[in-house]
C-alpha cells in the first residue's frame, strides 16, 4: 500500500516536472482511440440520421435560410474589406511593423474530460495539422479556450471556464483591461480585481485584449452577467456569461495567426496584398521600398 502510494506520488512529481511520460501517454491514448470512437457511436448515429433522414420541406427551408444567411454575411464581408483597408492605413500611419493575419482550421469535438471539474475537451486535429500548444480555439460565437496538449491526430483543449484558466480581456466600449477567470461552471466566468469606481454595466461585451501574447486580440469572450457591489469589500464581484457555447459546440475553430510585415510604402497596393494574400504583390512592395 505504502509502496504504491509512494509510487503514485513519484509519478505525479515526474509528470509535473518532466515530459518523460509523454510517449506512454500518447501510446495508451492511441490504444484507447477505438473505445472513444465506440462511445461516440450514439451521437454519430444521431448525426447520421439527422443528415440522411431529413424531409424535403425541411431541406428546402434550411436551404432558404442558409441562402439568406450567406447574403447577409456577404454584406458584412464587404464592410470587413472596407475596415481592413482603413485598419491598414491607420497602422501604417502609426508605423506599425506587422499586420496579423488569421486562418482557421475546423476541428470536431471527439471527447470531453472524464473528470467533470476539469473543463477539457479532445478535438480531432493534432500535430499533423499543425496544431500547437497554446493555440487559441474559437467557436462561432466567441473564444472557447486554448490547446494544452497535442498528439499526432488529436489535441486537448482547456476551456476558458476551467477553474485553472484565466484570460486577459478588455471592455469593448472603453478598452479597460481586466482578467477573466474560469469558475468550473460553463455559464460563468469571474472578473478579477474590479475596482468599485470602474464604469462597467451589465451586458457589456468583453473582448480578448491580446495581452500576454497567448490569445489574439479582439475576439468576444463574454458579456457581463451580474455586478455585485458589497460594502466593505475592496473589489466588485462581476460574473461574465461566455459568448461561446462552451458546453454545446461540437465544431471548433483552431486559430492560426500569422505575422505579415507591412510594407511601408504604397498604402493602397499593400492593402491589396494583405487582403488577397498575394505574395508577389508583397514582394514588389518590398522591392519598392528598397
Amino acid at each position: 500500500m505504502l509502496v504504491l502510494l509512494a509510487l503514485a506520488l513519484a509519478l505525479l512529481f515526474v509528470d509535473r516536472n518532466t515530459r518523460w511520460l509523454e510517449p506512454t501517454r500518447t501510446w495508451i491514448d492511441s490504444a484507447a482511440q477505438p473505445l472513444r470512437w465506440l462511445s461516440n457511436t450514439p451521437s454519430n448515429v444521431a448525426k447520421w440520421s439527422d443528415q440522411n433522414l431529413l424531409s424535403r420541406s425541411e431541406l428546402v427551408a434550411d436551404n432558404q435560410r442558409l441562402k439568406t444567411e450567406v447574403l447577409v454575411l456577404k454584406g458584412e464581408v464587404q464592410r470587413v474589406v472596407d475596415l481592413s483597408v482603413e485598419n491598414a492605413r491607420l497602422r501604417n500611419l502609426l508605423s506599425a511593423r506587422e499586420l496579423l493575419k488569421t486562418r482557421v482550421l475546423v476541428a470536431e469535438l471527439i471527447g470531453v474530460s472524464t473528470m467533470p471539474l476539469r473543463h477539457q475537451v479532445t478535438v480531432n486535429r493534432g500535430a499533423r495539422d499543425g496544431v500547437f500548444v497554446g493555440q487559441a480555439v474559437l467557436d462561432g460565437d466567441g473564444l472557447m479556450g486554448q490547446v494544452i496538449a497535442v498528439d499526432n491526430d488529436r489535441s486537448q483543449v482547456m476551456l476558458i471556464s476551467d477553474a485553472r484558466h484565466a484570460i486577459p480581456v478588455q471592455i469593448a466600449e472603453f478598452g479597460t483591461r481586466l482578467i477573466a477567470e474560469g469558475t468550473g461552471d460553463y455559464q460563468r466566468l469571474q472578473l478579477r480585481h474590479v475596482p468599485p469606481t470602474l464604469n462597467i454595466k451589465e451586458h457589456d461585451l468583453l473582448l480578448s485584449s491580446g495581452l500576454g501574447g497567448r490569445f489574439p486580440a479582439g475576439y468576444p469572450v463574454g458579456r457581463v452577467a451580474t455586478i455585485e457591489r458589497k460594502s466593505g469589500q475592496d473589489f466588485v464581484e462581476v460574473t461574465v456569461l461566455p459568448t461561446a457555447q462552451l458546453n454545446r459546440s461540437r465544431h471548433l475553430l483552431l486559430l492560426f495567426t500569422e505575422v505579415n510585415p507591412i510594407p511601408h510604402s504604397g498604402v493602397s497596393s499593400s492593402i491589396d496584398s494583405d487582403i488577397d494574400g498575394d505574395i508577389n504583390n508583397n514582394e514588389r512592395d518590398k522591392a519598392d521600398v528598397d
Binding site: 505525479l12 509528470d15 501517454r25 486537448q156
Partner: peptide, 20 residues
C-alpha cells in the same frame, strides 16, 4: 487508476492514488 489517468489527460498518478 494509472490507465484512467493516461486516457483522461489527468496528471499521471492522480487516479492511481485515489483508486489505490
Amino acid at each position: 487508476g494509472l490507465l484512467v489517468d493516461f486516457v483522461s489527460g489527468a496528471p499521471a498518478g492522480e487516479s492511481a492514488m485515489a483508486f489505490c
